[in-house]
């Protein structure tokens, strides 16, 4: 799983997102759904983007695919995919990349498939936009893909409609559709949230296997830290449209550096530890993007905000790399202090 980073394009990363901003002007004011996000991803690796509702994680994924309408959204920054910049590119060029070089699977496979067309027709359509082949060839490819994602008797099921599939089978079909053109980048937005736990495990296994086979880069967007720990190589935690922590998966789970990440870890009951008496939730609720708190957006919910000498209320903390690591966090609190809090106050209680 954790293969070394492959360098495919001579130094520059396969996917390089730089200072991405996606803003929506609304009647109530400017909504900064994504505000200065940067990350990189190589082929064969998985980035987990974690966040709660309104954190900007889904907006980011749609932004990479170029699915925000230019009339509604202001997108700025740079997205480099395999050496091509997407934000400033002609929308029709980006459209041609979609489905072929980057594809997406969604949370709810039932509502994400057209109810009037067969599973096969929808896969064939995806394949034939980007490949000049006959319907017959495309159909054979669709059956082949369905078989590869583990759908039994694919030659029969190819003519079924989405509502005739079970939830897990639908998500497999969705994955087959997304992978039909062998895209290098796969974005999975909460792909298992709507599924039962045994089916979720099957789908996660499938994604892992397919990644090995296709050598794709995967962005896994989820609220479930368990899923991230199972699949991701790197993790990016979003809060209020910004990245608050970004690092390798081991660092994130064993040495997290942001109080919000601590809160997320303390919020979830864990099956791999003895039962705790009480969960340690974050107080309050995720902020509204229209009315983001000043300074560090997390400060009203942060138990340590009073230790920053008032800076947390006035100053947006920068995302800083910790020396000799690749681990970054955006927090005003001194890093040594944070390490101490984690090691003595938080970690042992999980």
């Amino acid at each position: 799983m954790s293969e070394p980073v492959k360098d495919t394009s001579g130094g520059s990363p396969f996917l390089d997102v730089r200072d991405l901003r996606i803003h929506f002007p609304t009647d109530d004011g400017l909504v900064r759904s994504v505000d200065g996000l940067s990350f990189t991803l190589e082929r064969g690796r998985t980035l987990g983007i974690v966040g709660e509702s309104g954190s900007g994680k889904s907006v980011t994924s749609l932004g990479i695919l170029g699915l925000h309408h230019r009339r509604n959204a202001r997108v700025s920054g740079e997205i480099w995919l395999d050496g091509k910049e997407l934000v400033g590119a002609d929308p029709d060029d980006v459209r041609r990349l979609r489905g072929r070089h980057m594809a997406m699977i969604f949370q709810d496979p039932l509502s994400s498939m057209h109810p009037f067309y067969t599973i096969g027709a929808q896969i064939i359509e995806a394949y034939r936009i980007h490949n000049a082949v006959s319907k017959k060839v495309a159909r054979k490819h669709a059956i082949d893909m369905l078989g590869r994602v583990g759908i039994p008797t694919p030659d029969k099921r190819v003519d079924d409609y989405p509502h005739q599939f079970s939830g897990g089978m639908r998500q497999r079909a969705m994955i087959a559709m997304a992978l039909s053109c062998d895209p290098e980048l796969l974005i999975a937005d909460e792909p298992t949230t709507a599924l039962d736990v045994t089916v979720q495990a099957q789908i996660l296994d499938l994604l892992r296997d397919l990644q090995r086979e296709f050598d794709s880069a995967i962005i896994m967007i989820t609220h479930d830290l368990g899923v991230v720990a199972e699949l991701a190589d790197d993790v990016l935690v979003m809060y209020g449209g910004r990245c608050v922590e970004y690092g390798a998966v081991d660092d994130m789970f064993h040495r997290p550096l942001h109080p919000y990440t601590w809160g997320l870890l303390g919020s979830m009951p864990r099956l791999d530890r003895a039962r705790t008496e009480r969960l340690m939730p974050v107080k309050g609720a995720p902020p509204s993007l229209i009315n983001l708190p000043s300074g560090c957006a997390f400060h009203p919910r942060c138990a340590y905000a009073d230790r920053t000498g008032g800076r947390s209320q006035t100053e947006v903390p920068e995302l800083r790399v910790e020396p000799e690591t690749t681990h970054r966090a955006a927090c005003h609190l001194d890093v040594a202090e944070r390490r101490r809090v984690w090691e003595t106050e938080i970690g042992p209680k999980l």
Partner: peptide, 27 residues
């Protein structure tokens, strides 16, 4: 047993070591 082993565990270190029971098919 299968249900319990299917729950993803928020510990990347446990990724490879733990016992996995994968049920096939759907309910």
């Amino acid at each position: 047993k299968a249900l319990l082993s299917a729950v993803p565990v928020p510990d990347p270190a446990a990724r490879d070591g733990r016992e996995r029971i994968r049920l096939t098919g759907d309910v």
